[in-house]
């Protein structure tokens, strides 16, 4: 239930606050749609990385069966997360359609951006299982460093409006690209020229391969509690 309520409430709060500050959203006419498209993409990454990172601790009891490996818990969590996000997005944008009917959507970039967000999240989450297991200091530090990720991922502004040189710094963040790509599916006139496909696809593939490799490598260590 919280999987649906989290994005809905966040989008509602963003809409309320920002429609008070500004009069027109950076793109289109609806604040709700602008924040929904931004947060949905961000949320897919963030929730997947959080859920996958806790996959093994949540299923620790099941590791008592010798045939169940840490790897299985991770794969299971990823599958569950994909199914959950599918339902969440269906409900979110289905509901949104009644509030602000969007004219036309292009499923191609939307699905591609979703896939990249989930794969990247799963990869980061999988690596973090191992790093969190080895160091609880790192776990704290990760939490602190990632708190502002929401702000610098282009959920409530467009990177096009950010001045040089900060724009270049910002574009190191793969989530900015993912959010941009996701939005092109909802805003037919939006170009998002800054989206660097080889960069984000490469990073997503690298992160998932590296993450699953770490899980496989640290199999024995992960079976023992911290």
């Amino acid at each position: 239930m919280w999987a649906v309520l989290d994005p809905v409430l966040t989008i509602a709060i963003l809409t309320l606050v920002f429609s008070g500050i500004a009069h027109v959203p950076p793109l289109g006419r609806s604040f709700t749609l602008f924040f929904a498209t931004g947060y949905a993409a961000f949320y897919m990454y963030r929730s997947t990385s959080d859920q996958v990172a806790s996959a093994i601790d949540a299923n620790r009891a099941l590791l008592n069966y010798p045939v169940v490996r840490p790897y299985d818990a991770v794969i299971g969590r990823i599958v569950l997360q994909v199914a959950t996000l599918f339902v969440v997005n269906l409900l979110l944008f289905g509901g949104l359609w009644f509030v602000v009917p969007f004219e036309q959507i292009d499923l191609g970039p939307i699905l591609l951006a979703s896939l990249i967000a989930i794969v990247l999240g799963a990869g980061v989450g999988a690596s973090n299982i191992v790093w969190f297991h080895l160091s609880s200091t790192y776990q704290q530090v990760w939490g602190i460093i990632n708190r502002p990720a929401f702000i610098i991922s282009g959920v409530f502004f467009l990177p096009d409006t950010v001045p040089h040189p900060f724009r270049e710094y910002l574009l190191w963040n793969p989530l900015v690209h993912v959010v941009g790509l996701f939005r092109t599916g909802f805003y037919p006139t939006y170009r998002a020229n800054y989206v660097d496909m080889p960069y984000i696809v490469g990073l997503a593939v690298f992160s998932i391969v590296f993450g699953l490799f770490l899980i496989w490598l640290f199999d024995a260590k992960l079976r023992e509690s911290k």
């Binding site: 009891a61 590791l63 008592n64 069966y65 010798p66 199999d219 024995a220 079976r223 023992e224």
Partner: peptide
């Protein structure tokens, strides 16, 4: 369910999971 530091365990039998209080 856990691995030895070194050496090995050979099981020529069907061994259950450990049954304990921790569940």
């Amino acid at each position: 369910t856990i691995k030895p530091t070194s050496g090995r365990i050979i099981r020529l039998a069907n061994v259950s999971f450990p049954l304990g209080f921790q569940g």
